[in-house]
Design a protein around this nucleic acid. Structure first.
Length: 885
RNA sequence: GCCCGGGUGGUGAAACGGUAGACACAGCGGACUUAAAAUCCGCAGCCCGCGAGGGCGUGUGGGUUCGACUCCCACCCCGGGCACCA
C-alpha cells in the first residue's frame, strides 16, 4: 500500500467498499489459533434469516459484538467470531408452501442476503465457519446428540395433546392458533392426543437454578430463569377418600388401609392444614374414575359434563386471567389427616393436572384462589394463621412472615416456619406424606408434525418397538420432494413419502421411520459448539477444540430469548458435560442483551366520529400517507422496526446515506448498549460530523506525522501543550480499553470524541517542534482505538500514514500510568457539603497544604463567618469539605 | 397480582458515596459567504440579579452520612415479561 494524502472529510463512498474487499482478499477475519495466546469467543444469537432482511436495528446487535471482537483481536487474542443461520422452522415452511416453492433454496437466498448485509456494515465474521441448521452436515449431529440424550434416558415418547384444526386437517403450532381459532380458516381448534417426543429437562431443574450463580448474566435474566423453573418447597401427602355424609363412622382415624382410594395433594402451606375446608382435583384427574363409580348419579353426570366442557376449552382460554371460578362437587369427601374431619372434593379447572399432583387441599382463609372459589360455592372460610403481634386481619390473608398458627390444635401458637417443619415431620413419621421440592418447569416437547425440521433418528419395527438409527446411518436426511404440505391426519408430511417412511434396520427387519421432526430450539441448543470445529465429518466436534474455545466469552442477543433458548442450550450443555463430551457445564460465561432500535412510526389523529381501540391515540398510517397530510394531523410514536409498520431503515439505506462507519458510530454512541434507542437521521448525521472531524485532524497532522515517534520522543522536550496531549492520550487509552471490555460502547465513543477535541485544542495551542512526536503518538492511538467502531476509516487513515496492512492486525495501544497521571488537580471546596469554590493544587500536594489553601479561600470565609469550624474532611484528589456550625 | 428493568436539561445521555448534566443532538449568537448549505468560534439546567453572586434542582416523602442521582425504608409513574403453579 502506498502512502496517500488523507482526505480532510469522511467520504465513505470513496473508500469503505474498497477496504471491505481488501479484508476479504486478505482473509483477514479467518479464525487464528496461534499457540500461547488467550482466546476470546464472541457470539451473536443464531438468527433466523427472514425474507424481510436485516434492519439497522438488527445490525446494532452485531456491531456491538464486533467492537469487542475487534479489540480482542488487536490485543492479541485468538478470536472466534462466527455467524450461522437457524434455518429450520415454521415461517420458512409456511412461506414456501404459500409460494409453491421449496424452503431450502429460499432460505439459502435469505441467508445470502443476511451475509451480504452483515458484510456491508463491516462485521468481522469468519465466514469460513458458517453453516445453517438445515445443512445435512449439521443436522446429522443434531440427530447424533438426540441419540445421546435417548441413551441417557433423557428423550422419551408419550401421549400429549396438539392443537388440531379439523378443517385444514393439520396440527397447528401455538402461534397459529389465534383466539382459539385456526389462523388460516378460522375453524375452532380442537385438541388431539398423539404420541410425541420430549426431553427430560426437569431432571436438570435444580442444576439449572444452582449454576446460574456462576454466570455473568444480567440479574433480570437469571431471575426470569429461576421463576420459569419455579422451585417450591412443600409437603405432598395423601388424604383418605370417603363417600358417606360428614360424621359417619368411616371417618374414624386416618390410618391408611389397603385398597382404599387416596387423594394425593401437594402444598407449600402445610401450616394451614387446619384451615382446609374442601379439596379440588383437576378435571383430568385419574382418581375421578374410581370416585365416579361410587357416587350418586347426579354427581357423576355433573362431573362428566364438566369434564367435557373443560376438554373443549383451549389451554389459553382455560388459563385466561380474571376468569370466574367454575367447578362441580364430585360427591366424594376427603378426610383431613390433621383434624380427622371430612371435606368435600370439588372438580375445577383452576387446578392444573400438569403441576404437582393435579389436586390441592383448599384453604380459603389463606389463599386468594381458594377464597374466590369458596365464596362462589358457599364453602366455609376458616382462619388458622394470624399476625404474630395479634390483631384482626381480613381474609384471605396470605402473609407468612411474622405469622403464627391459630385454631390449629396442638400447633397453635407456632410460627408458620416451625409449624411447617413440625407438620412435615409428623406426616413423614406417620407415613402419609413427605416433604418435597416441586418445580413448575415441564419437560421439553420437541416433536413437530412438520417437514422443515431435523428428522428424529428413530425407527419402529412391526412389533411397535422403537430403535435408534445407528450412528453410521446418520443423517436421516429430509427427502427432497415436491409435496411437503402437512398431511391430513395429523402426522408429518414425511409420513406420506414411502421412500422415507419405510426402512430396513441393520438386522434386516422392516420398519417405519419416526416422521416427526424436532422443533427449532433443538438445533439452536448446540450450534455454539459446532462453530468450534465446523467442518468435522467424524464427530460433532473435536473435544480439544471445544476445550480451547468454550465457553462463549460474550454472547449477545435480545431479551426475548431470556428463557427458552438460553435454558435449552444450558440443558444440552450439561447433558453433554455429563456424557464427557464437552468440558464445560455452562455454555455462555457472559450474556449481554442489547436494546432494540425503534423507528418513528407515523400515526394520524382520529377524525370526527372515528372510534379507536382502548389504549390507542391514533391510526397508524404509512410514511407515504403521512407525507400527504397536514403536519398537525400526524404524530409519531417510537416502535420496534417492522416491515408492516413501514418504519424500517435497512443497512443499505443507512450505508448509502451516511456510510457504514457513521452507522456504526451512531448506533454505538446513541445510548448504553442494553437500552432501547430511536433511529434518528440527525443522530446519524452527528456521527458523520464526528468522522469529518477525525479526517480533518488526520489530514492536518499527516505532514508532521513521524512513525518513529516511539524511539524519538523525550518527555522533557515537550511543551506544556505536548505534555497535556500525552496525558489525554494515555487517559483515553485506559478508559476506552476498559469501556469496550465491559460493553460500555457509548462512553468509549464519547471518550474518542473528547480526544479529538483535545487534539484540536492542541493544534491551536502554543507548542514546539518536539510536540509533533506527541501528536504522532496521539494520532496513532486515536486511529487504532477508532478501529473497532469505525474500521474502514481507521484503515484509510492508517494506510495514509504509511502503514502496511490493516489496523485489525496492528497492536492495540497500551497506556502508561505515569503519563496518564495528572500533575495539577482541581479540588472542590465545600462548606457543609455545598460547593463554594474550587482550588488548583499540585497533584502531590499533601493534605495540610490543600486544607490550608481551601480555608484560605475568601468564598469559604464568607460562608463560615461567625461559625466554628468543627472539622475538615479531605478526600485526596477530590475535595475538601469544611464542616462549620 | 408477581417478577424484571427504568424515571437526571428542549432531546439522547454522563457521573468509584465526593464539583450533577461529560459527550452529543436540537437551539441561540457570531465568523466565513452576494446568499444559503457546509465549516469554525462562542452561549446554554431552572429562578432572582446589570453584575458579583445567591437560591432551587436527578419521580415523591422519609432516613443513614461531613457529603446521596448513587445506600436504606415507604410510595407514585412508565416500559417489558409471566400469570389460577397449590
Amino acid at each position: 500500500m502506498v502512502q496517500h494524502p488523507i482526505p480532510d472529510r469522511y467520504e465513505p463512498a470513496s473508500f469503505e467498499a474498497q477496504w471491505r474487499e481488501r479484508w476479504q482478499e486478505a482473509d483477514l477475519f479467518r479464525t487464528r489459533e496461534l499457540p500461547g495466546r488467550p482466546k476470546f469467543y464472541g457470539l451473536d444469537f443464531f438468527p433466523y434469516p427472514s425474507g424481510a432482511g436485516l434492519s439497522v436495528g438488527h445490525c446494532r446487535n452485531y456491531i456491538g459484538t464486533d467492537l469487542v471482537c475487534r479489540m480482542r483481536a488487536m490485543q492479541g487474542y485468538n478470536v472466534l467470531h462466527p455467524m450461522g443461520f437457524d434455518a429450520f422452522g415454521l415461517p420458512a415452511e409456511n412461506e414456501a408452501i404459500a409460494k409453491q416453492t421449496h424452503p431450502a433454496p429460499m432460505i439459502d437466498r435469505y441467508a445470502a442476503t443476511y451475509q451480504r448485509q452483515m458484510e456491508l456494515v463491516g462485521i468481522s465474521y469468519d465466514w469460513s465457519r458458517t453453516f445453517k441448521s438445515s445443512d445435512p452436515d449439521y443436522y446429522r449431529w443434531t440427530q447424533w446428540i438426540f441419540k445421546r440424550l435417548y441413551e441417557r434416558g433423557l428423550a422419551y415418547r408419550k401421549l400429549a395433546s396438539v392443537n388440531w384444526c379439523p378443517q385444514c386437517m393439520t396440527v397447528l403450532a401455538d402461534e397459529e392458533v389465534v383466539g382459539g381459532l385456526c389462523w388460516r380458516c378460522d375453524t375452532v381448534v380442537e385438541k388431539k392426543q398423539i404420541p410425541q417426543w420430549f426431553f427430560k429437562i426437569t431432571e436438570y431443574a435444580q442444576r439449572l437454578i444452582d449454576d446460574l450463580d456462576e454466570l455473568d448474566w444480567p440479574e433480570g435474566i437469571k431471575q426470569m430463569q429461576r421463576n420459569w423453573i419455579g422451585r417450591s418447597e412443600g409437603v405432598e401427602f395423601s388424604m383418605k377418600v370417603a363417600f358417606g355424609a360428614p360424621g359417619s363412622q368411616e371417618d374414624e382415624g386416618f390410618v391408611v388401609k389397603e385398597r382404599e382410594p387416596m387423594l394425593r395433594v401437594f402444598t407449600t402451606r402445610i401450616d394451614t392444614i387446619f384451615g382446609v375446608t374442601f379439596c379440588v382435583v383437576s378435571p383430568e384427574h385419574p382418581l375421578l374414575e374410581s370416585i365416579l363409580g361410587r357416587v350418586a348419579d347426579e354427581h357423576r353426570e355433573a362431573v362428566r359434563a364438566y369434564q367435557e366442557q373443560a376438554k373443549r376449552l383451549s389451554d389459553t382460554d382455560r388459563q385466561a386471567t380474571n376468569r370466574e371460578k367454575t367447578g362441580v362437587f364430585s360427591g366424594a369427601f376427603a378426610v383431613n389427616p390433621a383434624t380427622g374431619k371430612r371435606v368435600p372434593i370439588y372438580v375445577a379447572d383452576y387446578v392444573l393436572m400438569n403441576y404437582g399432583t393435579g389436586a390441592i387441599m383448599a384453604v380459603p382463609g389463606h389463599d386468594e384462589r381458594d377464597f374466590e372459589f369458596a365464596q362462589k360455592f358457599g364453602l366455609d372460610v376458616v382462619q388458622v394463621i394470624a399476625p404474630a403481634g395479634g390483631g384482626e386481619v381480613e381474609l384471605p390473608w396470605t402473609d407468612k412472615e411474622a405469622a403464627v398458627m391459630v385454631n390449629s390444635g396442638e400447633y397453635s401458637g407456632m410460627s408458620v416456619k416451625d409449624g411447617q417443619a413440625a407438620l412435615g415431620e409428623w406426616m413423614e413419621a406417620l407415613g402419609i406424606g413427605e416433604r418435597k421440592v416441586q418445580y413448575k418447569l415441564r419437560d421439553w416437547l420437541i416433536s413437530r408434525q412438520r417437514y422443515w425440521g431435523c428428522p428424529i433418528p428413530v425407527m419402529y419395527t412391526a412389533d411397535g418397538d422403537e430403535h435408534l438409527v445407528p450412528d453410521d446411518l446418520l443423517p436421516v436426511q429430509l427427502p427432497d420432494v415436491e409435496n411437503y404440505q402437512p398431511a391430513g391426519d395429523g402426522s408429518s408430511p414425511l409420513a406420506h413419502i414411502p421412500e422415507f417412511l419405510n426402512v430396513t434396520d441393520a438386522n434386516g427387519r422392516l420398519g417405519r421411520r419416526e416422521t416427526d421432526t424436532m422443533g427449532g430450539f433443538a438445533c439452536s441448543s448446540w450450534y455454539f459448539l459446532r462453530f468450534c470445529d465446523p467442518h468435522n465429518d467424524q464427530a460433532p466436534w473435536d473435544l480439544e477444540k471445544v476445550a480451547e474455545w468454550m465457553p462463549v466469552d460474550c454472547y449477545v442477543g435480545g431479551a426475548e430469548h431470556a428463557v427458552m433458548h438460553l435454558l435449552y442450550a444450558r440443558f444440552w450443555t450439561k447433558v453433554l458435560f455429563d456424557a464427557g463430551l464437552v468440558p464445560v457445564k455452562e455454555p455462555f460465561a457472559k450474556l449481554v442483551n442489547q436494546g432494540m432500535v425503534q423507528g418513528p412510526t407515523p400515526y394520524r389523529k382520529p377524525r370526527e366520529g372515528e372510534r379507536l381501540a382502548v389504549g390507542e391515540e391514533g391510526i397508524r398510517i404509512s410514511p407515504e400517507e403521512a407525507a400527504t397530510l397536514p403536519a398537525d394531523e400526524v404524530f409519531y410514536r417510537n416502535e420496534k422496526m417492522s416491515k408492516s409498520k413501514g418504519n424500517v431503515v435497512t443497512p443499505e439505506e443507512a450505508v448509502e446515506k451516511f456510510g457504514a462507519d457513521a452507522l456504526r458510530v451512531f448506533e454505538m454512541f446513541v445510548a448504553p448498549f442494553e437500552q432501547d434507542v430511536v433511529w434518528t437521521e440527525t443522530g446519524a448525521q452527528g456521527a458523520v460530523r464526528f468522522l469529518h472531524r477525525v479526517f480533518k485532524l488526520a489530514s492536518d497532522l499527516q505532514p508532521s506525522y513521524d512513525p518513529d515517534w516511539r524511539a524519538k520522543i523525550v518527555q522533557d522536550d515537550l511543551s506544556q501543550a505536548g505534555r497535556d496531549l500525552r496525558r489525554t492520550t494515555h487517559q483515553t487509552i485506559r478508559k476506552v480499553t476498559d469501556d469496550l471490555a465491559k460493553t460500555a460502547f457509548n462512553t468509549s465513543v464519547s471518550e474518542l470524541m473528547k480526544m479529538v477535541n483535545a487534539m484540536n485544542d492542541f493544534l491551536k495551542a502554543e507548542r514546539n517542534p518536539a510536540d509533533d512526536l506527541a501528536a504522532s503518538e496521539a494520532l496513532e492511538a486515536l486511529v487504532l482505538m477508532l478501529s473497532p467502531v469505525a474500521p474502514h476509516s481507521s484503515d484509510e487513515i492508517w494506510s495514509g500514514l504509511g502503514h502496511i496492512g490493516f489496523t485489525y492486525d496492528a497492536e492495540w495501544p497500551s497506556f502508561d500510568p505515569a503519563l496518564a497521571k495528572e500533575d495539577v488537580l482541581t479540588i472542590a471546596v465545600q462548606v457543609n457539603g455545598k460547593l463554594r469554590d474550587t482550588i488548583t493544587v499540585a497533584a502531590d500536594a499533601p493534605k495540610d497544604v490543600v486544607e490550608q489553601a481551601a480555608l484560605a479561600s475568601p468564598r469559604v470565609a464568607v460562608h463560615t463567618e461567625g461559625k466554628a469550624i468543627r472539622k475538615v474532611i479531605f478526600v485526596p484528589g477530590k475535595l475538601v469539605n469544611v464542616v462549620a456550625s
